[in-house]
Design a protein around this nucleic acid. Structure first.
Lengths: 210, 210
DNA sequence: GAGATAGCCTACTCCTCAGTAAGATACATC
DNA sequence: GATGTATCTTACTGAGGAGTAGGCTATCTC
């Protein structure tokens, strides 16, 4: 996107543009974050664009300068959450570990996501408010996580570190337990997200070991 | 509410009233049921009173003849679900069974509720759409179930049929897993609610046994 | 058959809120 | 300084949908 300056002393005419683009992107992320916070707190339908704007000390049309529509806003929040997790996974997953440890690693990251302001929206806000295409897109991203876990379970059954009778139901159970966590978890409470995540995984470790 | 007829041959003047009241109550339940179905299918905000009315072949004011407001409708659906479960529990729970079996019995009934049209609303529809008082009322009813399970876990630790390291987190996990089930369960799928419930409980039986 | 009342309908009101039009301001480039 | 463009504002529109006013009809009671 950026052009290299040619010849000597020629200033980078795109520098300021880059700066602006960076600012633009930063502000967009700020809007997403604020929206996520409010969606998570009050729900999607109970949050108005005006409230998001007010929380950021701007006016409604400013929000619309950065987003397409309210639905688009929700989609972007959810999408960002899923993409962030995917990145974290491909960065940190250590393929050499025993399967049970990789499972723990996965759900440590998953728990961190699902208890973050962005991730909470995945669990607390229904995707019924989205159009069919966006919904499909998000579902296929979520499906990937299930497939990843499925694989880990299979490998665990080979390397002997995991033993579950019904992998499909195990997956539904563990994702369900984590996805439900935002319903009772409170950031003002005594435990941190990481503590909760660890304790929650421990329950399923008991179910996966013999 | 009904007066006994006094003397001979005096007809029960309340008979027709009783009949009407029964009809009234029956129709009210029908409205709740239809509302629950639509709420579960499309979500609370995505369902209009007109749609509920149309599904019942009546008009909107007819619905309002039976309910106070849309919010009231949601509250009554959720409340009915919880009360029904409470009744089923106090009717069927067998105190003489070992704790682990009572736990299974509990979640068999809980699963049956949570996958029914009424119960699904508890899990799929956020109570954020309710006023503070209704929300408190529902939450305290739900809390009761947690307390019941807590008790069973304690008894199971005494009679030796249950062994969990962290009862609090176990409770969060198992309720979460069941509460999330409506998100993926489909009535048109291969498995029945009872089959799903049994398989789901089996996962947690593995986690609760040693 | 004359009220009285339950049950339901047609035809509205009214408000919230997503989204927009059109213009002001700040800032960069020439 | 003139011009252009990104950013943001004031002041609107428009629709969807919750809820209601008022009236019609069937049924019950006397």
């Amino acid at each position: 996107m950026t052009k290299k300056p040619v010849g000597r002393k020629r200033p980078n005419v795109w520098e300021s543009v880059d700066l602006r683009q960076e600012q633009h992107e930063a502000k967009r992320r700020l809007i997403l974050k604020q929206a996520a916070l409010l969606f998570a707190d009050r729900g999607f339908h109970e949050t108005t664009i005006d409230q998001i704007a007010e929380a950021l000390n701007v006016t409604k049309p400013t929000i619309y300068y950065y987003i397409e529509s309210k639905e688009d806003l929700l989609y972007q929040v959810a999408h960002t959450a899923l993409v962030d997790l995917n990145e974290a996974l491909s960065r940190d997953q250590d393929a050499k570990l025993p399967a049970i440890d990789r499972l723990e690693q996965f759900f440590t990251m998953y728990g961190r996501l699902i208890l973050s302001e962005f991730g909470v929206c995945l669990a607390l806000v229904s995707d019924r408010s989205l159009n069919a295409q966006s919904r499909r897109k998000l579902r296929s991203l979520k499906k990937q996580f299930e497939i990843t876990v499925r694989k880990i379970l299979e490998e665990g059954s080979k390397d002997g570190t995991i033993c579950v009778d019904d992998p499909k139901m195990f997956i539904f159970a563990i994702f369900g337990a984590f996805n439900w966590a935002p319903q009772w978890f409170s950031n003002t409470g005594a435990s941190t997200p990481d503590e909760v995540t660890a304790a929650m995984f421990h329950v399923f470790r008991s179910a996966a070991a013999r």
